[in-house]
Amino acid sequence: MPPTKLLTAIVDDHPIVIEGLKTLLENEPNIKLVGGFCSGAAILSYIRTNEVNLILLDITLPDINGMDLCQIIKKESVSTVILILSNHTERSIIMQTIQNGASGYLLKNSAVDELRHCIAEAVKGNICYSKEVMEIISRPTKNDLQGVPRLTRREKEILMLIAAGKTSQLIGQELFISPLTIDTHRKNLIQKFGVKNVAELIMAAIQQRIL
């Protein structure tokens, strides 16, 4: 059984945001605030010696991003519920934090009722988003609209080698073609997937189960 009051920590790089959230939540009957933390290191140090049931976590922190911190917190304390409170509206960031163990994602301009609702849902084990975040997630991405790109056998081969972290030079040596040709394939793949760089290319290929 969860405790009657959720031991709650706020992690944000702006002390004024922490104070604002404390003021909003201090009269909530099911919440007991245990502190505000301005860095990843500070909250990690705290949860190693203290119980925390709920963490309201920002993405932008001075020492680590909230997406990675989410994963680390869940490894340290699997039962701690994490809700993201952020100004970031990129769909990829939202999806990554959920993948890394967050139970929900709200924008900082969310209403208090939305925050209350998401806390209640998250504690029940559900994943919850604020209304605006739901709209961002439900919008089809460029890749969804385009469908899975058609790749030649050679492109698939090169994509797999790029994903393995190999340079154009190494791939060229392996396939007996010039590094310039590999660079051309690399550019074509980035264009076909409608992404900006190699990191996004690999992520898109994994999402579309090409890798």
Results as ranks from 00 to 15, higher is better:
170 L>G: 11
178 S>E: 13
91 R>K: 15
201 L>I: 08
77 S>E: 04
190 I>D: 06
101 G>H: 10
165 G>W: 13
127 I>M: 06
185 H>F: 14
59 I>S: 06
197 N>Q: 11
138 S>D: 04
169 Q>P: 00
73 I>R: 09
163 A>K: 08
39 S>V: 04
182 I>C: 05
200 E>N: 11
124 K>H: 02
196 K>Q: 12
147 G>W: 02
139 R>L: 12
129 Y>S: 01
100 N>L: 03
68 D>S: 10
195 V>W: 02
37 F>K: 08
50 N>D: 05
185 H>V: 00
71 Q>V: 00
12 D>I: 08
36 G>V: 03
12 D>L: 09
71 Q>I: 01
69 L>G: 13
16 I>D: 14
110 S>G: 02
201 L>R: 05
36 G>P: 05
7 L>Y: 06
106 L>N: 05
179 P>C: 06
26 E>I: 10
45 S>P: 01
204 A>L: 03
81 V>D: 03
100 N>P: 00
177 I>T: 14
138 S>T: 09
47 I>V: 13
52 V>C: 15
20 G>C: 05
98 I>V: 14
14 H>L: 14
205 A>K: 01
209 R>M: 06
23 T>S: 07
205 A>P: 02
108 K>H: 02
143 N>K: 07
200 E>V: 01
93 I>F: 07
120 A>N: 10
107 L>A: 03
92 S>F: 11
46 Y>K: 08
189 L>S: 03
151 L>W: 06
17 V>D: 08
